[in-house]
């Protein structure tokens, strides 16, 4: 296995991995570090690439595990506060932000950030990245039922809160 294979098979997943790490960590810099580490690990394990059926799912799984490790060490050190509802909004806000829809999108961002870890991971992988239930269960090492149940809970939690915002104009 050489660098060319790495560039063709592994590197194209970078943005998906980055977004997932960002979803978990809520910090661009940390997410970037994690994805870099993922790639180094995958490169060092290149002798076993033949056994990996779905390279993207494999990389995503490593991203999840390294992000969790990172999250734990950050929380232990208290380097930066990982509040329940940390904001993962763009720095370069789109013009929408000024409109009402933009404001609602900010609410959505906060709602999703406030979801429990697993639900947040699953709603991201499904609704942002468009993975199948099968792929998600492989990435997160969960069985299919757990994926579905957690997605259902996540969507309904978001829905309930959105409806409340709508009703009271929060």
């Amino acid at each position: 296995m050489d660098i060319e294979a790495f560039q063709n098979r592994v590197l194209p997943a970078k943005n998906k991995l980055f977004r997932f790490a960002l979803r978990m960590l809520g910090n661009d810099e940390e997410a970037r570090d994690v994805v870099q580490e993922v790639f180094i690990r995958v490169w060092n394990g290149r002798e076993n690439w033949g056994d990996i059926q779905n390279m993207e799912a494999w990389c995503m799984r490593i991203t999840k595990n390294l992000s969790l490790d990172r999250l734990r060490s950050i929380q232990r050190k208290g380097t930066y506060p990982v509040a329940e509802g940390f904001d993962v909004q763009h720095a370069d806000a789109t013009p929408d932000v000024k409109t009402e829809l933009g404001e609602s999108m900010q609410h959505v961002s906060q709602l999703i950030a406030a979801l429990p870890e697993k639900q947040r991971q699953i709603i991201h992988l499904r609704d942002v990245e468009g993975y199948t239930y099968n792929e998600i269960s492989e990435m997160l090492e969960l069985d299919m039922n757990q994926v579905k149940v957690n997605l259902f809970r996540a969507r309904n939690a978001v829905r309930e809160k959105l409806m409340k915002i709508n009703a009271y104009g929060l």
Binding site: N15, F18, R19, Q36, T94, M105, V128, L162, I165, N166
Partner: peptide, 26 residues
């Protein structure tokens, strides 16, 4: 409006990418 905000949010999130020097660094 709220439902639209949700789906637009998902859509918009997908446009987030790593920086341009990422490949080189890796």
């Amino acid at each position: 409006r709220e439902t639209a905000a949700l789906f637009r949010y998902f859509d918009e999130q997908k446009s987030k990418t790593t920086d341009s020097q990422f490949d080189e660094t890796v």
